[in-house]
């Protein structure tokens, strides 16, 4: 399965990937945009506190797909699990409960938000927005 991986030794926690993800997926007027890419504060052994970022693993057996009663999710030809039928989402959050990695998020309309791997970009020979922006080369696409 295709996914985006992060080399923690290279990541600086600058969050460029998070904002690039919003730039890719939203209009600038959507001020409350929910990033498809996730970030959390992480404490390192040295004492360093910085953000660590992650996104969907696009699991082979995707628990979110199985849990969704509305068939919101589909797998793309290049292996990403995407919310292709997002308009159907009823905000039941069964996908979030099923996901072992706490990936699905919900926007102000209570509709699911999750990484789509920039599947169309990748199919067109471009990198996902987060990989493209990564300042330190920490993010890589594993096809």
């Amino acid at each position: 399965m295709a996914r985006i991986v992060c080399d923690e030794n290279k990541c600086s926690g600058c969050l460029a990937c998070v904002v690039a993800c919003m730039d890719q997926h939203y209009e600038e007027t959507q001020e409350d945009a929910v990033s498809l890419r996730l970030y959390e504060k992480k404490v390192f052994p040295s004492g360093l506190v910085r953000y660590a970022t992650r996104s969907c693993l696009h699991c082979t057996a995707a628990a979110c797909m199985e849990a969704c009663p509305m068939q919101v999710f589909e797998r793309t030809e290049n292996g990403f699990v995407v919310a292709a039928n997002r308009e159907r989402c009823i905000g039941c959050k069964k996908c979030a409960a099923a996901c072992p990695f706490d990936v699905p998020r919900f926007d102000a309309e209570n509709k699911v938000v999750k990484c789509d791997g920039c599947a169309v970009r990748v199919a067109c020979g471009l990198e996902p927005a987060c990989v493209r922006v990564c300042n330190t080369g920490a993010l890589k696409l594993v096809p």
């Binding site: 690039a20 730039d23 493209r132």
Partner: peptide, 19 residues
């Protein structure tokens, strides 16, 4: 996005540039 066309360009934007 960051530009890659010049030998001197790094190909990225920072978090601010992304916005």
């Amino acid at each position: 996005e960051g530009n890659k066309s010049q030998p001197s360009s790094c190909g990225h934007v920072c978090v601010k540039g992304a916005a």
